[in-house]
Design a protein around this nucleic acid. Structure first.
Lengths: 373, 373
DNA sequence: ACCCTTGCCGAAACCGGTTTCGGAGACAAT
DNA sequence: ATTGTCTCCGAAACCGGTTTCGGCAAGGGT
């Protein structure tokens, strides 16, 4: 039954072991180990001597060997729960690059797993921890109430959120201030002269949704405008949902002259609705999105949107997690950054006010109706 | 200096160790180990007894502990060398999902690293092997002559190509038959009535380019058409390059009525060129791409293109690599699959032949010129 | 009845580290 | 000079497995 494995000569390879180091220094490997791990019972002199020799001889402890005693393998874990409409998808490569380079510079590696469902995801965490394939996790796409957090907090497994969450106790995180972006967008639209501004929010189970909604409201207040509840929809994620929502909004007696979307995918749906109604994006209807997905730059006119440096996010998350694994307290490991506005062609001064827009829409609709039968 | 690490109680956790198993069976752990690893000096009876107990007690060997003796950690490695224009990028999530689920079902995990340059990539391989973070590698985007292959082959590290290569000796692989797709596309265009068909190929250093070019030629031959060298360009990768190439082709005395692109990104550039010349895609000019990137479905008309099941590709690659690590010979581990045509709105019978198209282009150009000054 | 295989398993070394324990030596205090 | 404390390192156990080696018992041949 046993087939001969491929000869991996890496086995006896040129690695310097701790015993080599010890021998070269005239010490025992136990002493060398303690010196390298900053045990207090090692004199400063030998500590330096050992560190120097380790450096010179290129000694790097074998993580798998350390792990059997310490249980720590110097690997950050990432469990991706892929959903159909995941705005992070296009940026996954950048995100992973950020994580793996930051981790690599500390001698850590990245272990990736995927899950189709939440339950499977939790099981995956358990497995990876039990198998010692990672020392901690980066948790992307945090929810307001997130079972992953409960699980890991309960098991005392280190983790860092990409995003914030409802109960932040014991959580370290890095997050983009989506609320600031939404607020900035509203003020920009108000400066253009828009007074009726709609907001298409994402799925409310994700934590960012509440924040972006708050940012929208804050921006409206700052601009001296009223946030009409009829113009605030949530759960608008896919292109189709975006189109449907926009159609509904534009059929109102007092339609918005600008739509702000928490997700670019929804914004792409607005393109369709505008095209169907014969509206000019950027003139008849202004539109601002969030994420900066590639499709938004490929379409005409290009979408005004907020882009996030996902590589930077990954790098900072990795560094935070490593610090956390080394024992830093979660409360000291909380960072944020801003999204950057990428100006496209979909926002500008309104060609007419809400009433004018309503009239135009009615007129267009009648034209179309007239042509059809 | 030493900060207290986060208490990971996974350490003493509920894991059943091999010694637990041995004790329960009244055997020594050495015997149990040999039984589980199919050593020939274990009776079939005890082998079964051990396997049964392992199953029942939920014993799973700790990979990191095994690794220190065997050097094998049950992890597949993936080093992504990210380039600016990587058509795989949008599919990375699916690809990773395929790999990690297939690997997971065998108890393996996935270690991911990234590199900015070829040299850094090679160094990364060395590091991962030396640190025993992976037992073998999946090599995406193979080149005709690929230094990664030389390195790994030389060090006898198992690997599997995603793609084929110039010197296949000792290489296992999985690949999509891009040549068949190109050939199919040509025949489709010929069936539409096209006679002058152009081909925009990708970067020639990648192995797929030669294959797709061959597929184009084979398709032309099969359709009874001549492949005009003036209509075959290569190194056309980005949207800008695609646009420039299309402009050049359409300025020829006998322009093509159809363009086949080895990459969707290039095809997106053709959209721009067609728009600039006032040509109707699907009527004046037919266009077929390859990859099925999301932008190609977002644009109007949608691009006729070939899509690849990247999750399936990842899964098969993972399985092949695991087999390879278990000792299967590379020559027995070579699989292929087909891309699937996704019909869009960019291909159809030509509205006019090449001469007619040339006339139309000249006319449009004069119109534009007349308007401009 | 004797020797020689052969099959099968226990004992122990080993992999490359970490961690505990104890003791040698330096130095200060009595 | 003796005792006590403190510093610093060696020795050895340990982590959870794998692999080598040797030997016992059963079976086979003469």
């Amino acid at each position: 039954m046993k087939t001969k494995p491929v000869e991996t000569r890496a086995g006896r390879g040129d690695r310097v072991r701790i015993s080599d180091l010890a021998e070269a220094l005239g010490l025992t490997k136990g002493t060398v180990s303690r010196a390298l791990n900053d045990y207090p019972d090692i004199s400063e002199a030998t500590r330096r001597r050992v560190a120097g020799a380790a450096q010179r001889m290129g000694y790097r402890p074998l993580a798998t060997a350390q792990a059997i005693r310490t249980g720590r393998v110097r690997a950050v874990g990432l469990v991706m729960q892929l959903e159909q409409h995941d705005s992070q998808r296009p940026f996954l490569a950048d995100f992973l690059r950020g994580i793996s380079t930051a981790a690599g510079s500390e001698g850590w590696t990245l272990t990736v797993a995927t899950a189709q469902s939440e339950a499977e995801g939790l099981e995956t965490f358990r497995r990876i921890v039990a198998d010692r394939k990672a020392d901690g996790f980066i948790l992307p796409r945090t929810k307001v109430r997130d079972p992953r957090i409960d699980l890991l907090r309960d098991r005392r497994v280190p983790f860092v959120l990409y995003g914030r969450t409802g109960n932040p106790e014991g959580c370290a995180w890095f997050d983009i201030l989506g609320e600031d972006a939404m607020s900035e967008a509203v003020i920009r639209l108000a400066d253009h002269g828009h007074r009726r501004i709609a907001f298409l929010n994402g799925a409310t189970r994700f934590n960012y949704s509440a924040l972006r909604a708050r940012g929208f409201r804050d921006g409206m207040a700052a601009a001296g405008l009223v946030a009409d509840p009829d113009l605030m929809l949530s759960g608008v994620v896919s292109v189709d949902e975006g189109e449907a929502a926009a159609r509904r909004l534009l059929a109102l007696p007092e339609p918005p002259t600008a739509i702000l979307c928490a997700l670019d995918t929804a914004a792409l749906g607005v393109y369709r609705a505008a095209a169907a109604l014969g509206l000019d994006l950027g003139r008849d209807l202004s539109l601002i999105g969030y994420d900066g997905i590639p499709e938004a730059a490929a379409v005409t006119p290009t979408l005004t949107s907020f882009e996030v440096d996902q590589a930077e996010a990954g790098a900072r998350l990795a560094r935070l997690l490593i610090e956390r694994c080394r024992g830093a307290s979660a409360e000291d490991l909380r960072e944020t950054a801003h999204a950057r506005l990428r100006i496209g062609g979909t926002d500008g001064p309104p060609a007419q006010d809400s009433a004018g827009l309503a009239a135009k829409i009615t007129q267009k609709r009648n034209e179309t109706r007239g042509r059809q039968p």
